[in-house]
Design a protein around this nucleic acid. Structure first.
Length: 563
RNA sequence: GCGCGAGUGGUCUAGUGGUAUGACAAUUGCUUCCCAAGCAAUUUGCCCGGGUUCAAUUCCCGGCUUGCGCACCA
């Protein structure tokens, strides 16, 4: 049972909500909420709170009866709308009605996106001894795509069936004899339309004399074409990898699901080159072998089931066509997802034999639980030496190399881990987006090291001295971090705004700061506050962002809340 | 690309053959010593093109965008 009580503090009246509970002979009363300064205000607030409480109850009942097991999940539309409102992602060319499959990153989005790329690069390139990076051109010689096999698909056409009216994809040269893929009916050859899945472009200003090429649909060919040059200039010996993050383009028939399937996007991937005779991987240690995962293996799928297996990299070794180097990189991929906090919604799906490309002996998809379903966020393919061999054939160049260990010339085999950068960006936002019932606002719980803005600095009120101090702190911090300065509206509003932007820390300058040279730092996820010396703020912030120190231990916990 | 539905400020929405409602957000003051308080002011909109009409945001046609289903996804 809860009731309203009046308290008089310093001559002013305040109303609180109290609750009482019988404990044996005693009655224990507890204040549970502040209601306002007048009795009217208090009554209104109380009835509102009861409504909210009852809503929670009915949700619980529904959960028990199984009607609504999960809490309300965000839809992808809501997320897209949120991203537009806060400046993460805008639809491209909106003043002309938009352009399907293209997106712009706004002020917060570009920061998050850059941080994500930077951290990926750090994790897979800079922190690895056997990895180097490149950035290849988006447009390459058209023969690239002949060698890679992409051009072959250009001879495909889409043809309508006369009988069932459905469209089939058919090789142009076999149009005369082809039948409908659905009902086997006769195809309407008049309806044949070319399918251009790569974006075409003309090189040279005079159209008749120009060379037709394509915007790359993947970054991988850059690594294969530059393979020898990179190996020579970096003086790497097998095994080593070449990494790249870059823009790719695909003429998607139906771009859908916000950023998930677009026509212009980034891939972060690397080709890891290994001597085909080398089966051992020295880097596959206990940490990697112990990496846990949820696996949907090929065998299970072939039985028509989608049951997940709880397993580990170590257990998978030797099964599922997984050899040591392949296992090592799969483990590393999972460790990356753990680092960015997405591992609990990742599952690994092994490709079935029927799905495998003819050059690949094993492929795994890493699927993420998006609001619109479990979809591929990253992949891992064992490509053998297919790509290098294709380029050797097409170009006539020597792309094999002399291996110092075995004293033989070899064409390396390749493991290719690949990541959709926008897909990781999207997953981060889906995971981070939280509606906080208590605070009545959205809190974007992005890991601090990825957050677009690391801290917001504000004077508690518009006071000249506080503003000067706040500006000083802000100017000092911005040399090292992306920080924001905010002095508009009430302090509560500023906290809420920053919760929505995913800013992990808010630094507030109050009257005591002027005398004591310390400030309060507020944690986004808990709203807890600590007191930190101005001289130590930079160091504390650095440690907090890198999770080197717990928030509660970074300073003295203080309670500043009135309400 | 096919089929069906939808498009009103930044967001969510009311409504109409005579150019539009409300809320939130945003901006600027004032206020405010810690969690979207208050006061005042300000900015912003009928997806685009064509047709019918004296008059179209509204009706019709086409396009674009978007949702769902199918298909596609190297």
């Amino acid at each position: 049972m809860s009731f309203i009580v009046k308290k008089t503090i310093n001559g002013k009246d305040y109303f609180y909500l109290r609750t009482s509970k019988r404990d044996g002979n005693r009655v224990i009363a507890k204040t549970i909420a502040y209601l306002g300064k007048t009795i009217k205000e208090a009554e209104l607030k109380k009835s509102e709170m009861e409504k909210i409480k009852n809503r929670g109850k009915s949700k619980k009942i529904m959960a028990e009866t199984g009607e609504e097991k999960q809490e309300k999940k965000i839809t992808i539309d809501e997320l897209a709308s949120f991203c537009k409102r806060k400046g993460f992602v805008f639809p491209s060319s909106l003043i002309y009605g938009g352009l399907s499959g293209f997106w712009d990153f706004g002020p917060l989005g570009v920061e998050l996106f850059n941080n994500l790329k930077k951290e990926w690069w750090k994790f897979f390139v800079q922190e690895k001894e056997n990895m180097i990076g490149i950035e290849a051109s988006i447009i390459s010689h058209p023969r690239t795509w002949k060698a890679s096999g992409h051009i072959a698909n250009f001879s495909d056409v889409s043809v309508k069936c006369k009988k069932c009216k459905k469209f089939s994809k058919v090789d142009k040269h076999e149009l005369e004899s082809a039948r409908c893929g659905f009902c086997g009916g006769e195809l309407d050859k008049q309806s044949a339309k070319d399918l251009n899945l790569m974006l075409k472009t003309q090189l040279g200003p005079v159209e008749e004399d120009s060379l037709t090429s394509y915007l790359r649909p993947e970054t991988a060919q850059g690594m294969f074409m530059d393979f020898r040059l990179v190996q020579e200039t970096s003086r790497k010996q097998l095994p080593f990898g070449i990494a790249q993050i870059g823009k790719c383009f695909r003429n998607e028939i139906a771009p859908r699901d916000f950023l998930f399937r677009s026509r212009e996007f980034h891939i972060a991937e690397f080709e890891f080159f290994i001597n085909p005779e080398e089966k051992k991987c020295d880097l596959l240690d206990k940490t990697r072998l112990d990496v846990k995962l949820r696996l949907l293996d090929a065998e299970t799928q072939e039985k028509g089931s989608s049951e997940l297996k709880e397993t580990s990299i170590g257990k998978m070794l030797g099964e599922n066509n997984l050899e040591e180097w392949h296992a090592y990189w799969l483990a590393e991929q999972l460790m990356w997802f753990e680092k960015i906090g997405l591992e609990d919604r990742i599952k690994v799906r092994e490709h079935m034999k029927s799905e495998l490309s003819h050059y690949s002996s094993a492929t795994f998809d890493l699927d993420y639980e998006y609001p619109f379903g479990s979809k591929e966020i990253a992949g891992n393919a064992n490509r053998g030496n297919f790509d290098l061999s294709q380029h050797i054939k097409e170009s006539g160049e020597k792309l094999d190399l002399f291996d110092e260990k075995t004293k033989k010339r070899v064409i390396p085999r390749v493991i290719e881990p690949t990541f959709g950068v926008e897909r990781m960006f999207l997953a981060l936002l889906c995971k981070a987006y939280t509606y906080d019932e208590k605070r009545q606002n959205i809190v974007l719980k992005i890991p601090a090291f990825l957050a677009p803005v690391k801290a917001a600095v504000f004077p508690l009120i518009n006071d000249e001295k506080m503003e000067i101090l706040a500006r000083d702190i802000f100017n000092d911090l911005k040399k090292e971090f992306n920080v924001a300065y905010d002095c508009s509206g009430s302090v509560g509003r500023r906290y809420s705004r920053n919760d929505e932007s995913g800013t992990p820390f808010c630094i507030t300058i109050d009257e005591k700061s002027l005398r004591g040279r310390d400030v309060t730092v507020r944690d986004r996820d808990t709203t807890q506050q600590i007191r930190v010396k101005i001289s130590e703020i930079k160091e504390v912030l650095r440690k907090l962002i890198n999770s080197e120190i717990e928030f509660e231990k970074a300073g003295k916990i203080v309670e500043t809340r009135v309400k």
